[in-house]
């Protein structure tokens, strides 16, 4: 059986889900028998070089770069999985959704105690190279179709492992009650 090709990305996340992924420890040796990595921070491939089978997305979308990245993943992956709270619901970054963007930017760059005395020209960073901040943080499925959701903050290494094995081999995944209950 040909190895499944997987890609991963951390959008507006904290890399915690990727760290949790690495917590599979020695099983990573089993994993590379099972799958081949393409675009991912794990192997540092920056651009898709071929069509992938599985895309794992950590984090929601807080800027236009995240959106383009996500669209790129959707285009290049047959199956797309939202991994963790931020990808599924926006998570911690989405706390700002209760505050208008203008106020957020003013607090961060103009009025906050660590910036108010040093941003002399009162500039909100606007270099065209910088990603544009979205009006709110979006969970991934509000932008593209997401096929599966792996809950947790972060999802445990075991859950990520089981999900990957399931997707790679077509076996049935049993989600333990603990992984889907309310906290």
């Amino acid at each position: 059986m040909a190895k499944k090709i997987i890609a991963t990305a951390s959008l507006s996340g904290c890399f915690g889900c990727h760290m949790s992924f690495l917590d599979i420890d020695a099983k990573i040796l089993d994993l590379i028998e099972l799958v081949e990595f393409n675009k991912s921070p794990i192997d540092d491939i920056k651009k898709f070089t071929k069509q992938c089978d599985i895309g794992l997305i950590e984090g929601g979308c807080c800027n236009d770069e995240n959106v383009h990245n996500l669209l790129d993943f959707r285009k290049n992956c047959k199956v797309l999985v939202s991994v963790g709270e931020c990808a599924i619901m926006g998570g911690l970054p989405a706390l700002r959704n209760m505050v208008p963007l203008q106020e957020c930017l003013e607090e961060a760059y103009l009025n906050g105690p660590t910036v108010r005395d040093c941003n002399e020209n009162k500039i909100i960073p606007n270099d065209p190279e910088l990603p544009k901040i979205l009006n709110k943080v979006y969970p991934c499925h509000e932008i593209v179709k997401i096929d599966y959701f792996l809950p947790g903050c972060p999802p445990t290494a075991e859950l990520i492992w089981n999900a990957l094995v399931t997707l790679a081999t077509g076996a049935e995944l049993k989600l333990p009650y603990e992984s889907v209950r309310f906290d």
Binding site: L101, Q102, L105, P125, L134, N135, K136, Y138, E142, K145
Partner: peptide, 21 residues
């Protein structure tokens, strides 16, 4: 499209930022 949510509009989503900067 089932793949890309038709309700999401990137230009509208970045309009607040454009106005702020």
């Amino acid at each position: 499209s089932e793949i890309i949510n038709p309700a999401f509009n990137l230009a509208a989503a970045t309009a607040d930022y454009e106005a702020a900067v």
